[in-house]
Design a protein around this nucleic acid. Structure first.
Length: 359
DNA sequence: TATGCGTGGTG
DNA sequence: TCACCAAGCAT
């Protein structure tokens, strides 16, 4: 008895049929998904795929519904002010996506009369549409046999073929495996079936191999490796940065907010003014020089902790009351109108802490 | 090729 | 509590 190898797997056509059979019975119904065999509006596919970049389905659903209700077509979205798009996107993260989404909509509305390109190569030239998203739109909206590779499919391929080379070096071999399995019939359903499989059964931890349509052929399972794949290169640890946020109120109850620079972290989003974020903690005396205006600062109890992709942030909050005509760069916003502005999650944490301590 | 870029759920 | 993770893209 020798160890099983990839040569012992059934042909791609057999694996594909078994996968599609499973998908016909188990496909999740999602707001952007058409019934099996039907095409979906490219606008919906594009909007959902961009929202789903590094983002979970439950997080996306309410945003997708809200965007579709407010901007039913790509032309409607193109006509919206960028700030309204950023405000609607607030809380979803990776805000460059919202800026690219808007730019992409304007490109399609202006130069293509609102019609999406139907090929992977043309889609790939548009802002915010990379390798994965171009392939996904081409396959799902236009029925093209594009090779769709995302994190789910990488994991499924690594396990099915027991590819043990750590990522990211191992991605090339996984892509080749996915390409070998990509069918010319129902490529969109095939791609969505693989992603559903990865999201619901072939999960990163504790995969439900017993329910998997590929339970028998899967080399990873047969070799006892499934849960360990795909192997990944070790990650760097995250540093912690510190800052002090300034909660500035006027007698009329309005609060000082400001817009962040257009690019970089939280680009173009609205924030509570703060010192720069650095590794060394700030003293109040140091922070005073970074304040948006002079005031008598009162530290608030508690602290905001937030983790970004590449660092932890600890924010202390100090409160200051200023006069009705106090001047500073920014916007003066009443408590009950914060939802009209593009406040990212970390800033909502600051707002909640400040409101709890000052009321 | 490596790094910067959010957020919330999970075990 | 905390590291890990999710339908990646731009540079």
């Amino acid at each position: 008895m020798t160890a099983p190898t990839p040569d012992s797997l059934p042909p791609a056509s057999v694996l594909g049929e078994r996968l599609l059979d499973w998908y016909r019975r188990n496909a999740r119904t999602l707001p952007w998904r058409a019934p099996f065999g039907e095409r979906t509006d490219p606008y919906r596919v594009w909007l959902s795929e961009v929202m789903l970049q590094q983002t979970t389905v439950p997080a996306v659903i309410p945003y997708f519904q809200a965007f579709l209700a407010r901007w039913p077509t790509v032309t409607d979205l193109a006509a919206a002010p960028l700030d309204e798009v950023l405000t609607a996107w607030a809380g979803l993260g990776y805000y460059a996506r919202a800026r690219n989404l808007h730019k992409c909509a304007q490109t399609i509305a202006t130069w293509r009369d609102g019609t999406f390109p139907a090929t992977e190569d043309e889609l790939h030239t548009l802002p915010g549409i990379g390798t994965y998203t171009a392939a996904a739109i081409a396959a799902i909206a236009f029925g093209q046999p594009a090779v769709v590779m995302d994190g789910n499919i990488e994991r499924v391929m690594a396990r099915l073929f027991a590819e043990t080379e750590p990522l990211p070096q191992g991605k090339k071999a996984l892509y080749a495996r996915a390409a070998q399995l990509t069918p010319t019939a129902h490529p969109g359903e095939h791609a969505q079936a693989l992603m559903d499989l990865g999201a619901t059964l072939c999960t990163p931890r504790k995969p439900a191999c017993g329910l998997c349509p590929w339970r028998d052929p899967c080399l990873g399972r047969r070799l006892g490796l499934a849960e360990t794949l795909p192997a990944k290169a070790p990650k760097k640890l995250k540093p912690t940065r510190c800052g002090i946020a300034f909660w500035v109120t006027r007698p009329d109850g309005t609060v000082l907010l400001r817009r962040r620079p257009e690019s970089g972290l939280l680009g173009g989003m609205i924030e509570v003014p703060s010192t720069p974020w650095r590794e060394d903690p700030w003293t109040l005396a140091e922070a005073r020089a970074e304040a948006p205006l002079p005031a008598e600062w009162v530290p608030l109890a508690g602290r905001v902790r937030h983790t970004f992709t590449h660092f932890h942030l600890d924010l202390d909050v100090v409160a200051g009351r200023v006069g009705a005509r106090a001047n500073a760069r920014g916007l003066w916003v009443p408590f009950d109108q914060f939802d009209r502005h593009a406040l990212p999650a970390v800033m909502l944490k600051v707002v909640r802490l400040a409101l709890a301590r000052t009321h």
